[in-house]
């Protein structure tokens, strides 16, 4: 019995070590603005991608936009959607459909010449999208 678990552990460790690879790449930063779309829980987002050091726009990438809800980790798996690049370099457009209103962490996955992930937190409401300011917890009133 013990030998089995040792072997399995060894295999797992080997798998882990096999994952080592190359280092140092271009990093991206992103500016995201979203506004409610025509349908319920649908939002149109404009994403500007740039090299985080040189501020050069990152063009020609494949960008997919997913979303997580930090208050319910792993429970909401919004199907990631592809974003299409606009005429303007480094500007991408995506239409996402969420599952409920509230605070979401948008997950921007970049692939192609640059592989990276940028996470943006936004609060999605029925008629607007804004910053995720924490709601005032009940009972915090002073006069």
């Amino acid at each position: 019995m013990r030998s089995i678990i040792c072997t399995a552990a060894a295999i797992a460790m080997l798998a882990l070590c096999g994952l080592e690879g190359a280092h140092a790449q271009v990093r991206a930063k992103a500016g995201v603005t979203c506004k409610p779309g025509t349908e319920k829980l649908q939002y149109d987002c404009i994403i500007k991608l740039a090299n985080s050091k040189t501020n050069e726009p990152l063009s020609g990438l494949t960008l997919t936009v997913g979303a997580d809800m930090p208050s319910m980790p792993a429970a909401h798996n919004v199907r990631p959607v592809g974003a299409a690049e606009d005429q303007e370099k480094g500007t991408y457009k995506a239409r996402i459909v969420l599952e409920m209103y509230g605070d979401w962490a948008l997950r921007l996955d970049l692939s192609g010449p640059v592989r990276d992930r940028v996470v943006k937190r936004l609060r999605f409401e029925r008629d607007r999208v804004g910053e995720t300011t924490p709601a005032r917890a009940p009972g915090r009133h002073r006069h």
Binding site: I5, L16, A22, Q25, R115
Partner: peptide, 30 residues
Amino acid sequence: RYIFDNNIDAFQFLLLIYALLAVVLLGFVL
């Protein structure tokens, strides 16, 4: 950014997760 810096793609990471989970389950069986 470990998985990006080391070019581990999502599928490889999935395999890693399930390999570790299998080890843990084996531990539970024992």
